[in-house]
């Protein structure tokens, strides 16, 4: 336990976190530092492919057990339920109207894949492994929250439905396709496949993640600078409280499923994280009247940094304590 707490403290001065902090500081200082759009896109493709592939190899190595299906079901259930919790909490804490509250809630039922990637990186640093299929759980948790948000709105008498185009766009968005595709390739090719490309997807991973988080820091900092004014104290508090509540749900699910320490930690991280890519796009289509400044700034400028700096070490410490890892 003490070792895990030491790791948690050292996380704050890891290259990954410091790169993120550098980005935030640069953006807040109005520096002209920027990562070209195509480079950021390339890095995100690299990270998704690498994490998906390694997850698939892990499944190929250790085989598939019944927990895979149960974990997927648990992830989907969490993604459905968490927006309802978030919606109630938002209405209580922030005074947001139904529309904005539902739009924000959708983000907190879905996931941040970068938080997941940072979580796996932290586990590697701690010498812990997680179930490889957690990658598939991450993919499964992207979309159900959007349906929950629309259901919450429809309960208020607004008969919005998700059109088939939007459903297709969500289910087949680039991140999900790449993550699941790389996972399946990893499953199919196993360790032999990994041996062929490990110099590309294993060794450079941490360095690329640093640069990617530098870019994310820039984005988060700019978001806070431009949209920070819309976040009232109650909403800001929600951005920190909701991840902790989500993590508790993830903890219960992970422990109930009998996952390893790493698996429980990742389930907590997924449940605690908030989307800032797939869900904002879906909300712009389905709930265009909702204020994007609120949900984007909250998700990217408050919850993401919180999870990255304090949340992940905390989740790892709790997961280790509960599973006695």
């Amino acid at each position: 336990m003490e070792q895990i707490l030491t790791l948690a403290a050292s996380n704050l001065i890891s290259p990954i976190i410091l790169s993120f902090v550098l980005g935030v500081v640069a953006a807040l200082a109005r520096s002209d530092l920027s990562v070209p759009e195509a480079v950021a896109k390339g890095m995100s493709i690299y990270l998704l492919f690498a994490i998906g592939f390694k997850g698939g190899v892990s499944v190929a190595d250790y085989g598939v057990d019944g927990r895979l299906a149960l974990s997927l079901l648990a992830g989907i259930a969490l993604s459905f339920v968490l927006p309802i919790v978030a919606f109630g909490l938002l209405r209580l804490m922030s005074g947001l109207d139904r529309l904005d509250a539902a739009a924000v809630a959708a983000h907190y039922g879905s996931i941040s894949i970068v938080t997941f990637v940072a979580g796996t990186s932290m586990l590697e640093g701690a010498g812990l492994e997680a179930e490889g299929y957690m990658v598939a759980v991450a993919a499964a948790m992207e979309a159900p929250a959007i349906l929950s948000a629309l259901w919450l709105i429809s309960r208020g008498g607004d008969g919005r439905r998700m059109d088939s185009d939007l459903m297709r766009e969500i289910m087949f968005n680039g991140s999900i396709v790449l993550l699941v595709g790389a996972f399946l390739i990893g499953c199919a090719t196993g360790q032999e496949g990994l041996d062929k490309i490990d110099s590309f997807i294993v060794a450079p991973f941490q360095g690329v993640l640093c640069l990617f988080l530098l870019d994310m820091g820039l984005v988060a900092g700019r978001g806070l600078r431009q949209g920070g004014g819309v976040l009232k104290p109650g909403i800001l508090l929600f951005g920190v409280v909701m991840p902790l509540i989500g993590a508790c749900f993830g903890l219960a699910a992970g422990v109930g499923l009998g996952l390893s320490t790493g698996g429980v930690m990742l389930m907590m991280a997924l449940s605690a994280s908030a989307s800032y890519i797939a869900v904002p796009a879906a909300m712009r289509v389905a709930l265009p009247e909702a204020n994007p400044s609120i949900y984007l700034t909250l998700s990217l400028g408050v919850t993401f940094p919180f999870n990255l700096t304090l949340g992940l070490p905390l989740y790892l410490a709790i997961a280790a304590a509960v599973t006695r890892g």
Partner: peptide, 15 residues
């Protein structure tokens, strides 16, 4: 009406 925005620093196509 929705405030200032810039393509720079958008993480998703949604924005």
């Amino acid at each position: 009406r929705s405030g200032a925005w810039s393509r720079e620093g958008q993480v998703g196509r949604g924005q």
